[in-house]
Design a protein around this nucleic acid. Structure first.
Lengths: 208, 208
DNA sequence: CAATAATGAACGAACGATCGTTCATATGGA
DNA sequence: TCCATATGAACGATCGTTCGTTCATTATTG
Protein backbone atom coordinates (compact mmCIF):
# COMPACT_ATOMS: atom_id res chain seq x y z
CA UNK A 1 0.00 0.00 0.00
CA UNK A 2 0.92 3.61 0.57
CA UNK A 3 1.16 3.97 -3.16
CA UNK A 4 -0.72 7.24 -3.04
CA UNK A 5 2.42 9.09 -2.01
CA UNK A 6 5.87 9.07 -3.61
CA UNK A 7 4.69 11.19 -6.51
CA UNK A 8 8.21 11.44 -7.83
CA UNK A 9 9.21 8.39 -9.80
CA UNK A 10 12.87 8.98 -9.00
CA UNK A 11 14.40 8.37 -5.66
CA UNK A 12 14.49 10.95 -2.90
CA UNK A 13 16.66 13.47 -4.69
CA UNK A 14 16.50 15.55 -1.54
CA UNK A 15 20.23 15.53 -1.69
CA UNK A 16 20.20 17.87 -4.65
CA UNK A 17 18.38 20.48 -2.59
CA UNK A 18 20.77 20.00 0.30
CA UNK A 19 23.73 20.51 -1.99
CA UNK A 20 22.18 23.70 -3.34
CA UNK A 21 21.42 25.01 0.13
CA UNK A 22 24.88 24.24 1.47
CA UNK A 23 26.61 25.72 -1.56
CA UNK A 24 24.52 28.89 -1.35
CA UNK A 25 25.47 29.45 2.27
CA UNK A 26 29.16 28.78 1.69
CA UNK A 27 29.46 30.80 -1.52
CA UNK A 28 27.73 33.70 0.13
CA UNK A 29 29.98 33.65 3.17
CA UNK A 30 33.40 32.93 1.69
CA UNK A 31 33.08 33.37 -2.03
CA UNK A 32 33.41 30.93 -4.89
CA UNK A 33 37.13 30.20 -4.89
CA UNK A 34 37.17 30.27 -1.11
CA UNK A 35 34.71 27.40 -0.96
CA UNK A 36 35.81 23.85 -1.76
CA UNK A 37 33.68 21.06 -3.10
CA UNK A 38 34.58 19.03 -0.04
CA UNK A 39 33.18 21.71 2.24
CA UNK A 40 29.96 21.73 0.25
CA UNK A 41 29.68 17.95 0.40
CA UNK A 42 30.31 17.87 4.13
CA UNK A 43 27.83 20.65 4.93
CA UNK A 44 25.22 19.00 2.72
CA UNK A 45 25.81 15.61 4.34
CA UNK A 46 26.59 14.11 0.97
CA UNK A 47 29.56 12.37 -0.55
CA UNK A 48 32.07 14.34 -2.55
CA UNK A 49 31.45 12.51 -5.78
CA UNK A 50 27.69 12.84 -5.53
CA UNK A 51 27.90 16.54 -6.23
CA UNK A 52 29.03 15.61 -9.72
CA UNK A 53 26.00 13.39 -10.23
CA UNK A 54 23.88 16.54 -10.00
CA UNK A 55 26.09 19.28 -11.41
CA UNK A 56 28.67 19.13 -14.13
CA UNK A 57 31.20 21.41 -12.45
CA UNK A 58 31.49 23.62 -9.41
CA UNK A 59 30.94 26.68 -11.59
CA UNK A 60 27.80 25.09 -13.05
CA UNK A 61 26.55 24.69 -9.52
CA UNK A 62 27.19 28.38 -8.86
CA UNK A 63 25.48 29.44 -12.08
CA UNK A 64 22.50 27.22 -11.35
CA UNK A 65 22.02 28.89 -7.98
CA UNK A 66 22.15 32.33 -9.59
CA UNK A 67 19.60 31.30 -12.22
CA UNK A 68 17.24 29.87 -9.61
CA UNK A 69 17.35 33.09 -7.61
CA UNK A 70 16.84 35.18 -10.71
CA UNK A 71 13.70 33.29 -11.65
CA UNK A 72 12.35 33.74 -8.13
CA UNK A 73 13.41 37.38 -7.86
CA UNK A 74 11.53 38.56 -10.93
CA UNK A 75 8.29 36.77 -10.15
CA UNK A 76 5.46 39.31 -10.33
CA UNK A 77 4.22 38.41 -6.86
CA UNK A 78 7.37 39.60 -5.13
CA UNK A 79 6.84 42.61 -2.87
CA UNK A 80 8.45 45.18 -5.13
CA UNK A 81 6.56 44.17 -8.24
CA UNK A 82 3.30 44.05 -6.36
CA UNK A 83 3.86 47.66 -5.36
CA UNK A 84 4.70 48.53 -8.95
CA UNK A 85 1.47 46.91 -10.11
CA UNK A 86 -0.91 48.01 -7.37
CA UNK A 87 0.09 51.59 -6.59
CA UNK A 88 1.08 54.74 -8.42
CA UNK A 89 4.30 56.70 -8.41
CA UNK A 90 5.07 59.03 -6.72
CA UNK A 91 2.29 58.54 -4.18
CA UNK A 92 3.74 55.13 -3.31
CA UNK A 93 7.18 56.18 -2.18
CA UNK A 94 6.80 54.77 1.32
CA UNK A 95 5.44 51.53 -0.13
CA UNK A 96 8.45 51.35 -2.45
CA UNK A 97 10.67 51.77 0.58
CA UNK A 98 9.00 49.01 2.56
CA UNK A 99 8.98 46.69 -0.44
CA UNK A 100 12.66 47.37 -1.07
CA UNK A 101 13.41 46.41 2.50
CA UNK A 102 11.48 43.17 2.06
CA UNK A 103 13.27 42.40 -1.17
CA UNK A 104 16.70 42.91 0.39
CA UNK A 105 15.65 40.79 3.32
CA UNK A 106 14.34 38.00 1.10
CA UNK A 107 17.08 38.13 -1.49
CA UNK A 108 20.08 39.19 0.55
CA UNK A 109 21.81 35.93 -0.31
CA UNK A 110 21.17 36.50 -3.98
CA UNK A 111 22.60 40.00 -3.82
CA UNK A 112 25.72 38.81 -2.07
CA UNK A 113 26.13 36.14 -4.74
CA UNK A 114 25.90 38.94 -7.30
CA UNK A 115 28.83 40.59 -5.58
CA UNK A 116 30.65 37.27 -5.68
CA UNK A 117 30.07 37.18 -9.42
CA UNK A 118 31.32 40.74 -9.82
CA UNK A 119 34.44 40.08 -7.75
CA UNK A 120 35.41 36.60 -8.90
CA UNK A 121 33.90 36.33 -12.38
CA UNK A 122 34.06 39.92 -13.55
CA UNK A 123 30.26 39.96 -13.43
CA UNK A 124 30.04 37.66 -16.41
CA UNK A 125 26.96 35.79 -15.21
CA UNK A 126 24.90 38.76 -14.07
CA UNK A 127 26.06 41.76 -16.11
CA UNK A 128 23.11 41.52 -18.48
CA UNK A 129 20.72 42.25 -15.59
CA UNK A 130 22.10 45.77 -15.39
CA UNK A 131 21.48 46.74 -18.99
CA UNK A 132 18.50 48.69 -20.24
CA UNK A 133 17.47 49.46 -16.69
CA UNK A 134 15.86 52.83 -17.34
CA UNK A 135 13.85 51.38 -20.20
CA UNK A 136 12.51 48.64 -17.97
CA UNK A 137 11.38 51.26 -15.47
CA UNK A 138 9.84 53.28 -18.30
CA UNK A 139 7.93 50.22 -19.46
CA UNK A 140 6.71 49.54 -15.93
CA UNK A 141 5.39 53.08 -15.72
CA UNK A 142 3.77 52.92 -19.13
CA UNK A 143 1.94 49.72 -18.28
CA UNK A 144 0.14 51.41 -15.38
CA UNK A 145 -3.27 52.92 -16.14
CA UNK A 146 -4.00 56.50 -15.19
CA UNK A 147 -1.52 58.32 -17.37
CA UNK A 148 2.03 59.40 -16.59
CA UNK A 149 3.01 60.32 -13.03
CA UNK A 150 2.42 63.94 -12.05
CA UNK A 151 5.92 65.28 -11.37
CA UNK A 152 7.65 68.64 -11.55
CA UNK A 153 8.21 69.55 -15.18
CA UNK A 154 11.52 68.52 -16.69
CA UNK A 155 11.80 65.33 -14.68
CA UNK A 156 11.99 61.97 -16.46
CA UNK A 157 9.50 59.76 -14.59
CA UNK A 158 11.46 56.55 -15.22
CA UNK A 159 14.71 58.08 -13.98
CA UNK A 160 12.94 59.58 -11.00
CA UNK A 161 11.44 56.27 -9.95
CA UNK A 162 14.81 54.57 -10.41
CA UNK A 163 16.40 57.16 -8.18
CA UNK A 164 13.87 56.45 -5.45
CA UNK A 165 14.01 52.66 -5.66
CA UNK A 166 17.80 52.53 -5.81
CA UNK A 167 18.06 54.82 -2.85
CA UNK A 168 16.01 52.41 -0.79
CA UNK A 169 17.82 49.34 -2.06
CA UNK A 170 21.20 50.81 -1.30
CA UNK A 171 20.03 51.84 2.15
CA UNK A 172 18.82 48.36 3.04
CA UNK A 173 21.80 46.65 1.49
CA UNK A 174 24.06 48.74 3.70
CA UNK A 175 21.90 47.99 6.71
CA UNK A 176 21.45 44.29 6.24
CA UNK A 177 24.25 43.01 4.05
CA UNK A 178 27.15 45.20 5.08
CA UNK A 179 26.14 45.08 8.72
CA UNK A 180 26.09 48.85 9.08
CA UNK A 181 23.06 48.70 11.37
CA UNK A 182 21.51 52.09 11.94
CA UNK A 183 24.02 53.90 9.80
CA UNK A 184 21.66 56.85 9.38
CA UNK A 185 21.21 57.11 13.13
CA UNK A 186 17.53 56.22 12.98
CA UNK A 187 15.16 53.26 12.63
CA UNK A 188 14.20 51.82 9.26
CA UNK A 189 10.69 53.32 9.34
CA UNK A 190 12.11 56.71 10.28
CA UNK A 191 14.60 56.47 7.47
CA UNK A 192 11.85 55.60 5.00
CA UNK A 193 9.84 58.59 6.22
CA UNK A 194 12.83 60.87 5.87
CA UNK A 195 13.69 59.66 2.38
CA UNK A 196 10.06 60.00 1.30
CA UNK A 197 9.88 63.51 2.66
CA UNK A 198 13.03 64.58 0.82
CA UNK A 199 11.92 62.94 -2.41
CA UNK A 200 8.51 64.59 -2.28
CA UNK A 201 9.35 68.10 -1.19
CA UNK A 202 13.15 68.45 -1.39
CA UNK A 203 15.67 69.71 1.11
CA UNK A 204 15.13 73.46 0.82
CA UNK A 205 12.75 75.42 3.04
CA UNK A 206 9.42 76.09 1.42
CA UNK A 207 9.36 79.84 1.98
CA UNK A 208 11.69 80.71 -0.82
CA UNK B 1 79.66 62.30 4.09
CA UNK B 2 76.69 61.93 1.84
CA UNK B 3 74.73 61.10 4.93
CA UNK B 4 71.90 63.37 3.83
CA UNK B 5 70.76 60.94 1.17
CA UNK B 6 70.31 57.19 1.15
CA UNK B 7 67.56 57.21 3.74
CA UNK B 8 66.96 53.59 2.93
CA UNK B 9 69.95 51.45 3.75
CA UNK B 10 68.90 48.78 1.28
CA UNK B 11 69.02 48.82 -2.47
CA UNK B 12 66.31 49.86 -4.91
CA UNK B 13 63.43 47.91 -3.41
CA UNK B 14 61.32 48.93 -6.38
CA UNK B 15 60.20 45.35 -6.46
CA UNK B 16 58.02 45.90 -3.43
CA UNK B 17 56.00 48.48 -5.34
CA UNK B 18 55.72 46.19 -8.33
CA UNK B 19 54.42 43.40 -6.13
CA UNK B 20 51.84 45.74 -4.65
CA UNK B 21 50.73 47.01 -8.04
CA UNK B 22 50.44 43.52 -9.53
CA UNK B 23 48.58 42.17 -6.51
CA UNK B 24 46.15 45.09 -6.55
CA UNK B 25 45.26 44.50 -10.19
CA UNK B 26 44.84 40.76 -9.76
CA UNK B 27 42.90 40.91 -6.50
CA UNK B 28 40.57 43.49 -8.01
CA UNK B 29 39.93 41.45 -11.13
CA UNK B 30 39.65 37.90 -9.79
CA UNK B 31 39.40 38.19 -6.05
CA UNK B 32 41.71 37.03 -3.28
CA UNK B 33 41.31 33.28 -3.44
CA UNK B 34 41.16 33.43 -7.21
CA UNK B 35 44.62 34.94 -7.35
CA UNK B 36 47.70 32.81 -6.71
CA UNK B 37 51.02 34.00 -5.37
CA UNK B 38 52.64 32.67 -8.53
CA UNK B 39 50.44 34.90 -10.66
CA UNK B 40 51.39 37.89 -8.55
CA UNK B 41 55.08 37.07 -8.81
CA UNK B 42 54.91 36.61 -12.55
CA UNK B 43 52.96 39.81 -13.20
CA UNK B 44 55.33 41.74 -10.93
CA UNK B 45 58.37 40.29 -12.67
CA UNK B 46 59.64 38.96 -9.38
CA UNK B 47 60.47 35.56 -8.00
CA UNK B 48 57.89 33.63 -6.04
CA UNK B 49 59.93 33.55 -2.87
CA UNK B 50 60.69 37.23 -2.96
CA UNK B 51 57.09 38.09 -2.16
CA UNK B 52 57.73 36.58 1.26
CA UNK B 53 60.72 38.80 1.82
CA UNK B 54 58.35 41.75 1.75
CA UNK B 55 55.10 40.38 3.16
CA UNK B 56 54.52 37.76 5.78
CA UNK B 57 51.57 36.07 4.08
CA UNK B 58 49.32 36.56 1.09
CA UNK B 59 46.61 37.90 3.38
CA UNK B 60 49.07 40.37 4.90
CA UNK B 61 49.74 41.61 1.40
CA UNK B 62 46.02 42.10 0.83
CA UNK B 63 45.56 43.90 4.13
CA UNK B 64 48.54 46.14 3.43
CA UNK B 65 47.01 47.22 0.13
CA UNK B 66 43.71 48.03 1.85
CA UNK B 67 45.49 50.05 4.52
CA UNK B 68 47.48 52.01 1.96
CA UNK B 69 44.33 52.91 0.07
CA UNK B 70 42.54 53.88 3.25
CA UNK B 71 45.29 56.32 4.21
CA UNK B 72 45.16 57.88 0.77
CA UNK B 73 41.37 57.91 0.60
CA UNK B 74 40.87 59.94 3.75
CA UNK B 75 43.48 62.56 3.01
CA UNK B 76 41.88 66.00 3.37
CA UNK B 77 43.01 67.06 -0.09
CA UNK B 78 40.92 64.48 -1.88
CA UNK B 79 38.10 65.91 -4.01
CA UNK B 80 35.23 65.03 -1.69
CA UNK B 81 36.86 66.43 1.44
CA UNK B 82 37.84 69.60 -0.35
CA UNK B 83 34.20 70.13 -1.22
CA UNK B 84 33.23 69.45 2.38
CA UNK B 85 35.76 72.02 3.56
CA UNK B 86 35.29 74.72 0.96
CA UNK B 87 31.57 74.82 0.29
CA UNK B 88 28.30 74.70 2.20
CA UNK B 89 25.51 72.19 2.19
CA UNK B 90 22.99 72.17 0.56
CA UNK B 91 24.20 74.81 -1.92
CA UNK B 92 27.03 72.49 -2.96
CA UNK B 93 24.97 69.52 -4.15
CA UNK B 94 26.34 69.61 -7.70
CA UNK B 95 29.87 69.94 -6.34
CA UNK B 96 29.26 66.92 -4.12
CA UNK B 97 28.12 65.03 -7.20
CA UNK B 98 31.18 65.92 -9.24
CA UNK B 99 33.50 65.16 -6.33
CA UNK B 100 31.81 61.80 -5.78
CA UNK B 101 32.42 60.95 -9.41
CA UNK B 102 36.08 61.86 -9.04
CA UNK B 103 36.39 59.76 -5.90
CA UNK B 104 34.88 56.71 -7.54
CA UNK B 105 37.14 57.23 -10.53
CA UNK B 106 40.25 57.60 -8.38
CA UNK B 107 39.41 54.89 -5.88
CA UNK B 108 37.50 52.40 -7.97
CA UNK B 109 40.14 49.79 -7.30
CA UNK B 110 39.85 50.40 -3.58
CA UNK B 111 36.10 50.05 -3.66
CA UNK B 112 36.30 46.80 -5.56
CA UNK B 113 38.80 45.53 -3.01
CA UNK B 114 36.25 46.44 -0.34
CA UNK B 115 33.77 44.18 -2.12
CA UNK B 116 36.44 41.49 -2.19
CA UNK B 117 36.77 41.85 1.56
CA UNK B 118 33.00 41.66 2.04
CA UNK B 119 32.69 38.59 -0.16
CA UNK B 120 35.76 36.60 0.84
CA UNK B 121 36.53 37.80 4.36
CA UNK B 122 33.06 38.63 5.65
CA UNK B 123 34.13 42.30 5.66
CA UNK B 124 36.46 41.71 8.59
CA UNK B 125 39.12 44.15 7.42
CA UNK B 126 36.87 47.04 6.46
CA UNK B 127 33.70 46.71 8.56
CA UNK B 128 34.89 49.36 11.02
CA UNK B 129 34.80 51.97 8.26
CA UNK B 130 31.02 51.70 8.14
CA UNK B 131 30.39 52.40 11.80
CA UNK B 132 29.44 55.79 13.21
CA UNK B 133 28.94 57.14 9.75
CA UNK B 134 26.18 59.62 10.57
CA UNK B 135 28.23 61.01 13.43
CA UNK B 136 31.16 61.60 11.13
CA UNK B 137 28.91 63.53 8.78
CA UNK B 138 27.51 65.48 11.72
CA UNK B 139 31.03 66.38 12.82
CA UNK B 140 31.90 67.49 9.31
CA UNK B 141 28.88 69.79 9.27
CA UNK B 142 29.62 71.17 12.72
CA UNK B 143 33.18 72.04 11.79
CA UNK B 144 31.99 74.35 9.01
CA UNK B 145 31.55 78.03 9.92
CA UNK B 146 28.27 79.78 9.13
CA UNK B 147 25.92 77.85 11.34
CA UNK B 148 23.81 74.81 10.52
CA UNK B 149 22.55 74.27 6.96
CA UNK B 150 19.22 75.88 6.14
CA UNK B 151 16.91 72.95 5.42
CA UNK B 152 13.23 72.23 5.68
CA UNK B 153 12.29 71.82 9.31
CA UNK B 154 12.39 68.32 10.71
CA UNK B 155 15.30 67.19 8.56
CA UNK B 156 18.50 65.98 10.20
CA UNK B 157 21.26 67.81 8.31
CA UNK B 158 23.78 65.00 8.75
CA UNK B 159 21.37 62.36 7.49
CA UNK B 160 20.34 64.61 4.62
CA UNK B 161 23.92 65.14 3.49
CA UNK B 162 24.59 61.41 3.78
CA UNK B 163 21.60 60.71 1.61
CA UNK B 164 22.91 63.05 -1.09
CA UNK B 165 26.50 61.85 -1.02
CA UNK B 166 25.55 58.16 -0.99
CA UNK B 167 23.17 58.67 -3.86
CA UNK B 168 26.02 60.05 -5.96
CA UNK B 169 28.47 57.38 -4.87
CA UNK B 170 26.06 54.59 -5.68
CA UNK B 171 25.31 56.14 -9.05
CA UNK B 172 28.97 56.35 -10.06
CA UNK B 173 29.80 52.94 -8.67
CA UNK B 174 27.08 51.46 -10.85
CA UNK B 175 28.33 53.44 -13.83
CA UNK B 176 32.01 52.82 -13.50
CA UNK B 177 32.51 49.68 -11.46
CA UNK B 178 29.55 47.58 -12.50
CA UNK B 179 29.84 48.68 -16.11
CA UNK B 180 26.22 49.78 -16.28
CA UNK B 181 27.14 52.75 -18.49
CA UNK B 182 24.33 55.22 -18.88
CA UNK B 183 21.97 53.23 -16.72
CA UNK B 184 19.84 56.32 -16.12
CA UNK B 185 19.60 56.98 -19.84
CA UNK B 186 21.52 60.24 -19.61
CA UNK B 187 25.04 61.63 -19.30
CA UNK B 188 26.80 62.02 -15.97
CA UNK B 189 26.37 65.81 -15.88
CA UNK B 190 22.69 65.46 -16.73
CA UNK B 191 22.29 62.88 -13.99
CA UNK B 192 23.98 65.17 -11.49
CA UNK B 193 21.66 68.01 -12.53
CA UNK B 194 18.62 65.76 -12.18
CA UNK B 195 19.65 64.47 -8.77
CA UNK B 196 20.41 67.98 -7.56
CA UNK B 197 17.05 69.22 -8.77
CA UNK B 198 15.19 66.44 -6.99
CA UNK B 199 17.16 66.90 -3.79
CA UNK B 200 16.56 70.66 -3.78
CA UNK B 201 12.92 70.87 -4.75
CA UNK B 202 11.52 67.35 -4.64
CA UNK B 203 9.51 65.38 -7.15
CA UNK B 204 6.09 66.96 -6.70
CA UNK B 205 4.83 69.87 -8.77
CA UNK B 206 5.20 73.20 -7.03
CA UNK B 207 1.59 74.31 -7.39
CA UNK B 208 0.18 72.19 -4.67
C1' DC C 1 92.67 52.61 -0.04
C1' DA C 2 92.30 47.63 -0.10
C1' DA C 3 90.56 43.52 2.10
C1' DT C 4 87.08 41.35 4.56
C1' DA C 5 82.83 40.55 7.06
C1' DA C 6 77.99 41.25 7.37
C1' DT C 7 73.62 42.15 5.43
C1' DG C 8 69.25 41.09 3.37
C1' DA C 9 67.03 41.13 -1.27
C1' DA C 10 66.36 37.77 -4.78
C1' DC C 11 65.86 33.30 -6.51
C1' DG C 12 63.42 28.85 -7.61
C1' DA C 13 63.26 24.01 -6.23
C1' DA C 14 60.80 21.58 -2.97
C1' DC C 15 57.20 20.51 0.68
C1' DG C 16 52.90 19.04 2.39
C1' DA C 17 48.27 20.23 1.86
C1' DT C 18 44.36 20.83 -0.71
C1' DC C 19 42.12 21.69 -5.02
C1' DG C 20 38.38 20.11 -8.77
C1' DT C 21 37.31 16.15 -11.01
C1' DT C 22 37.07 11.17 -12.30
C1' DC C 23 36.13 6.47 -11.70
C1' DA C 24 35.41 1.79 -10.12
C1' DT C 25 32.20 0.05 -7.21
C1' DA C 26 28.09 -0.53 -4.21
C1' DT C 27 23.22 0.02 -3.37
C1' DG C 28 18.33 -0.43 -3.78
C1' DG C 29 13.89 0.26 -5.89
C1' DA C 30 11.29 -0.63 -10.56
C1' DT D 1 18.12 -7.25 -14.36
C1' DC D 2 18.47 -2.49 -14.98
C1' DC D 3 19.67 1.98 -14.00
C1' DA D 4 19.84 6.16 -11.45
C1' DT D 5 21.91 7.43 -7.19
C1' DA D 6 25.56 7.28 -3.93
C1' DT D 7 30.20 6.49 -2.27
C1' DG D 8 35.15 7.72 -1.30
C1' DA D 9 39.69 6.45 -2.90
C1' DA D 10 42.58 8.14 -6.29
C1' DC D 11 44.55 11.42 -9.84
C1' DG D 12 47.14 15.15 -11.49
C1' DA D 13 47.35 19.94 -10.84
C1' DT D 14 48.02 23.76 -8.14
C1' DC D 15 47.95 25.98 -3.75
C1' DG D 16 50.63 28.95 0.07
C1' DT D 17 54.73 28.73 2.23
C1' DT D 18 59.57 27.41 3.41
C1' DC D 19 64.22 26.64 2.58
C1' DG D 20 69.09 26.68 1.18
C1' DT D 21 71.57 29.32 -1.60
C1' DT D 22 73.51 33.22 -4.46
C1' DC D 23 74.98 37.78 -4.87
C1' DA D 24 75.42 42.84 -4.95
C1' DT D 25 75.93 46.23 -1.67
C1' DT D 26 77.33 48.21 2.79
C1' DA D 27 80.08 48.39 6.94
C1' DT D 28 84.17 47.42 9.35
C1' DT D 29 88.78 46.62 9.64
C1' DG D 30 93.87 47.32 8.85
Amino acid sequence: MTLTKTPSPRASAGNRERILKAATTLFRRQGFHGTSTREIAEKAGVSLGNIYNHFKTKEDLFVFILAEYEKEYFRPDQPLYKVFADTSFPENIEALGEASGKMVHKFGDYMLLMYVDVVEFDAKHIARLFHGMRDRYAKLLASRPGGPPRLRSGLDPAAAMMMVVWNFFNYFMMEKLFKAKGHYGMSDPDAIRMFASVFRKGLLPEDR
